[in-house]
Protein backbone atom coordinates (compact mmCIF):
# COMPACT_ATOMS: atom_id res chain seq x y z
CA UNK A 1 0.00 0.00 0.00
CA UNK A 2 1.22 3.50 -0.77
CA UNK A 3 1.89 6.56 1.33
CA UNK A 4 1.98 10.00 -0.23
CA UNK A 5 4.37 12.66 1.04
CA UNK A 6 2.60 15.83 2.13
CA UNK A 7 3.87 19.39 1.93
CA UNK A 8 2.71 20.21 5.42
CA UNK A 9 -0.11 20.04 7.90
CA UNK A 10 -1.84 22.36 10.34
CA UNK A 11 -4.82 22.44 12.66
CA UNK A 12 -8.05 21.09 11.24
CA UNK A 13 -11.56 22.27 11.96
CA UNK A 14 -11.98 19.57 14.61
CA UNK A 15 -9.40 18.53 17.22
CA UNK A 16 -9.31 15.06 15.67
CA UNK A 17 -8.22 16.16 12.22
CA UNK A 18 -5.35 17.86 10.43
CA UNK A 19 -5.54 20.03 7.35
CA UNK A 20 -2.86 18.66 5.06
CA UNK A 21 -1.45 20.24 1.92
CA UNK A 22 -0.14 18.15 -0.92
CA UNK A 23 1.70 19.08 -4.09
CA UNK A 24 0.14 17.77 -7.27
CA UNK A 25 0.99 18.14 -10.93
CA UNK A 26 -1.80 20.70 -11.16
CA UNK A 27 -1.04 22.70 -8.04
CA UNK A 28 -1.56 22.47 -4.30
CA UNK A 29 -4.54 20.67 -2.83
CA UNK A 30 -5.77 20.84 0.76
CA UNK A 31 -7.81 18.22 2.54
CA UNK A 32 -8.88 17.39 6.07
CA UNK A 33 -7.87 13.97 7.36
CA UNK A 34 -8.00 12.10 10.64
CA UNK A 35 -4.87 12.81 12.69
CA UNK A 36 -4.18 9.12 13.15
CA UNK A 37 -3.38 8.59 9.47
CA UNK A 38 -0.67 11.27 9.20
CA UNK A 39 2.70 9.66 9.88
CA UNK A 40 6.18 10.85 8.92
CA UNK A 41 4.58 13.67 6.90
CA UNK A 42 2.70 11.24 4.68
CA UNK A 43 -0.84 9.95 4.25
CA UNK A 44 -2.11 6.56 3.00
CA UNK A 45 -3.40 6.46 -0.58
CA UNK A 46 -3.47 2.76 -1.38
CA UNK A 47 -2.00 1.63 -4.65
CA UNK A 48 -1.75 4.05 -7.59
CA UNK A 49 -4.56 3.78 -10.11
CA UNK A 50 -2.72 5.17 -13.15
CA UNK A 51 0.62 6.45 -14.42
CA UNK A 52 1.74 8.82 -17.15
CA UNK A 53 5.06 10.54 -17.95
CA UNK A 54 6.61 10.21 -14.52
CA UNK A 55 3.42 10.94 -12.66
CA UNK A 56 1.15 8.62 -10.73
CA UNK A 57 -2.59 8.95 -10.32
CA UNK A 58 -3.55 8.34 -6.70
CA UNK A 59 -6.82 8.42 -4.82
CA UNK A 60 -6.71 10.54 -1.68
CA UNK A 61 -8.25 9.41 1.61
CA UNK A 62 -10.70 12.32 1.52
CA UNK A 63 -12.07 14.67 -1.09
CA UNK A 64 -9.98 17.83 -1.35
CA UNK A 65 -11.48 21.22 -0.72
CA UNK A 66 -11.46 21.74 -4.49
CA UNK A 67 -13.53 18.60 -4.91
CA UNK A 68 -10.88 16.18 -6.17
CA UNK A 69 -10.46 12.57 -5.11
CA UNK A 70 -7.81 11.50 -7.64
CA UNK A 71 -4.75 13.64 -8.35
CA UNK A 72 -1.56 13.26 -10.39
CA UNK A 73 1.58 13.37 -8.26
CA UNK A 74 5.27 13.03 -8.97
CA UNK A 75 6.53 9.46 -8.91
CA UNK A 76 8.96 10.30 -6.10
CA UNK A 77 6.20 11.47 -3.75
CA UNK A 78 4.89 7.93 -3.28
CA UNK A 79 6.24 5.08 -1.22
CA UNK A 80 4.64 1.73 -1.90
CA UNK A 81 4.88 -1.31 0.31
CA UNK A 82 4.43 -4.67 -1.39
CA UNK A 83 4.77 -3.36 -4.96
Amino acid sequence: MGRLSIKGHSEGMHPGEWLVIIDTRDGEEELFVDRSIVKDESIPVGFPVGRSNGHLLVELPRETMRGKWRVWVDNGQLRVNGA
Partner: peptide, 13 residues
Amino acid sequence: QGQFSGQASLLPG
Protein backbone atom coordinates in the same frame (compact mmCIF):
# COMPACT_ATOMS: atom_id res chain seq x y z
CA GLN B 1 -2.03 -4.14 -6.33
CA GLY B 2 -2.89 -5.16 -9.89
CA GLN B 3 -1.05 -3.39 -12.70
CA PHE B 4 1.69 -1.99 -10.45
CA SER B 5 2.72 -5.30 -8.96
CA GLY B 6 6.50 -5.71 -8.95
CA GLN B 7 7.33 -2.35 -10.55
CA ALA B 8 10.75 -1.30 -9.35
CA SER B 9 10.22 2.36 -10.21
CA LEU B 10 8.05 2.81 -7.17
CA LEU B 11 10.15 3.44 -4.11
CA PRO B 12 10.02 0.66 -1.54
CA GLY B 13 8.31 1.63 1.68
